[in-house]
Structures are given as structure tokens and as C-alpha cells.
Design a protein around this nucleic acid. Structure first.
Lengths: 181, 181
DNA sequence: AACCTCATGTAACGGGTTACATGATTTC
DNA sequence: GAAATCATGTAACCCGTTACATGAGGTT
């Protein structure tokens, strides 16, 4: 379901869009939330059209197809957004790694945590620049300012955790057990 | 790969464990990072044993099998933790929803954002209590304090975003366009 | 005896990734 | 005219979810 929602959302936010351009969004801002490849996007767009949630508005050059959201698609999207799933699923390989890094011996874990901290700081910096390039929206939902702001806050929180955790491990008295077990 | 890593990590952190008990962890703290069901865990544990990354140390009553990490499994885990993937994948249905909420008309979006803010505040509160019940570890990697702390920071960041976004939308001058487009 | 929890497994299906495949247009 | 980019699609495989299935041991 989520891929469908993400596609409808992009069509709602950006107007008529081709599969090719949607794929670029899924490789950019959306990649931090719900990544997808063109091989998945094209078939899903076809299903969207079959279900009446989108229509092909134009066929441009090179076989380019512009998909447009239908009222039914918009309703479907709105309904999904209104009804909160109490236990939505998260699957994050990066958090899994952060989760487990403290298992390594301190002299290995600390530098890795510091490296992660600066990677996330950098990602936050880049996203913040993107966010600030767009000015804060005066029509809500337009132009992805809020989405970028969410990303910045997430990256910053992770950077803070990595720094605090590295500091904390570093401050521990050395034991002989090397963090094994 | 990630399921395997998560299993090895849990075996590294908790010593010999049964599939049944591992499944409970994947339903608890790990559910925010890498959820998994027993139907996926049991076959993967069998593969782990087949690949020499874990062994069945004991068979208890009721067919209970205690899996133990082997040195090869530990090496495999360490190697994975040391080598950072520059673009690790995240898939989060909840963030997707937050991402798209500002598409709704302000009078709908603002209450939903406030509801999300209090849900995340509550989640942060619960996790913080769990974290503080365990004291900060004096052996790194033990007892999941760092993991819980990461969760708290994430939830808090999202709550802050939802609040700030609701405030921001609320402060906008009313336009006639209802956030559609 | 009935019921609950512990404990492990399998099978069918759906969603996602990687790789394969093709052709049109633009740029050098 | 060669190469890069635009643009769409399909197929095989892997991973994850839901549902089905079974039995042991403890509780009332």
C-alpha cells in the first residue's frame, strides 16, 4: 500500500508527472522514507490507472507518459492520511547498525560512532541548505519545506545520539572484557 | 542480510537464546528498527546454523532450542558493523505519513499533526522510562540503554517537528485554495 | 478435561531488488 | 555517427507477511 500512497502523494504535491520523474523523487527526498526503483514504479502506475486513481494525461516525446491524480485517487490518499495506523512499520538498516555498534570493543566503537556523527551532521547540513533554499511555504504542503525540515531534525537527533554515546563509552573505566558479551 | 545481522546482534548481546525469545525481542525494542515474525526467524536461524554462524547449544523441554553465536558468526557481525554502507535503506510508513500530512487542508492537517505530536511524546515518555529503569551501562553494549536512548531522541525529534509544523500552518494566512494542489 | 502459553515449523502470497531489454532524442 | 541521457517496460529471484499446522507442558 505504501508505494501507492507515496505515488499518489507525489502526484498530489507536484501535479502531472512522468514515471521517470517520479523515480527521481524516490531516489532523492523520498529515499529517506520510502525508496523505490523504476521497475516497481512503472507497474504500480499502470495499476493506479487501472484502478482509476490516476490517468495518463499526455503522452510526450520518447514515449513519456504524464500521470495525473484523479479525484478518486485524491480521496483515497486523503482517507489514508486521515486514518492513523497505531503501529506503523519502520525498517532502518542504518538504525540497526547504530543499535548494534556499542557491541564492538570501545576502541573500535568510539571512532565509528564519531564517524557516524559527522556523516549525519553533514547530511543534516546538506538537507538544511536544501530546506532553506525553498522559503517556508505560505501554502501548506507545497514545495517540501516541511519534509526537509523533518529530515534535518531526524539527522540531527541521530548525530546527537552518536556523539553522546561516543562520549559516554569513552568516559567508562576500561574493563578487560572488550565489550564482548 | 539485515535480519541475519539483527539475529547475530541479539545473540551477541544476550548470549544463547531460543528462537521464541528472539521473536519477542523483535516484537519489542527491535520492532522500531527491524521488525520480524517467528515465521521468518526460525528458518533464518536454521540457515545461521547451516552456515556455521550459530550452533544449537541445547535442546530444552518442549523442543526449545538454544542458539549460540559461533566465533565465525561473531566475526561476520563485527565485519558488517565496521564497514559502513554509505547509503543504508530506511523504509518508514509513519514518516511517509508525516511527510504527506501537510498536503491536507489546514483545518484537517493541524489537528492530525497535534495528535501525532502527542502520540510521539507518549512513545518517547514510555521508552525513556524503560531506558531509565536500566541504569546507564558500565559495560558498553550491555542491556540496551543506548538503543533505548536512540529511540527516545528519535521520537522526541518527530514530536518537535509535528508541533512546529502545526504551529507554522496555523499561523499562515487563510487562502481559499484549501491546500489542494 | 479444557484452556492457555510455550515452542517450532511450513506454505502461499505479495512486495521489492537486480538484471535484462529496448528504443527515442540530444549532445559532441 | 558515437555516446550519453531520457524513458519505459519485463523476468527471476529474494525477502517479508499472513495463515495454517502441530505438539508439549502448565493451570483451573
Amino acid at each position: 500500500m505504501s508505494l501507492r500512497i507515496a505515488l499518489l502523494g507525489m502526484l498530489a504535491a507536484g501535479g502531472p508527472t512522468s514515471g521517470y520523474d517520479l523515480a527521481k523523487k524516490f531516489d532523492g527526498s523520498l529515499s529517506h522514507v520510502w525508496p523505490a526503483r523504476h521497475s516497481q514504479i512503472y507497474p504500480e502506475l499502470a495499476k493506479l490507472a487501472a484502478d482509476g486513481h490516476a490517468t495518463v494525461r499526455d503522452e510526450g516525446s520518447r514515449g513519456r507518459k504524464l500521470y495525473e491524480l484523479t479525484p478518486a485517487g485524491r480521496d483515497f490518499l486523503d482517507e489514508w492520511l486521515r486514518s492513523a495506523d497505531p503501529a506503523p512499520k519502520v525498517r532502518s538498516e542504518s538504525s540497526l547498525r547504530l543499535f548494534l555498534l556499542p557491541l564492538l570493543p570501545p576502541e573500535v566503537a568510539v571512532p565509528l560512532l564519531r564517524a557516524e556523527a559527522s556523516r549525519y551532521a553533514e547530511q543534516a547540513r546538506v538537507l538544511a541548505a536544501e530546506r532553506d533554499a525553498r522559503q517556508p511555504p505560505d501554502t501548506p504542503g507545497r514545495n517540501g519545506w516541511y519534509a526537509a525540515d523533518l529530515g534535518v531534525r531526524n539527522f540531527t537527533a541521530i548525530r546527537d545520539w552518536a556523539t553522546a554515546t561516543a562520549d559516554h563509552i569513552e568516559a567508562l573505566p576500561r574493563s578487560g572484557m572488550d565489550g564482548k558479551v
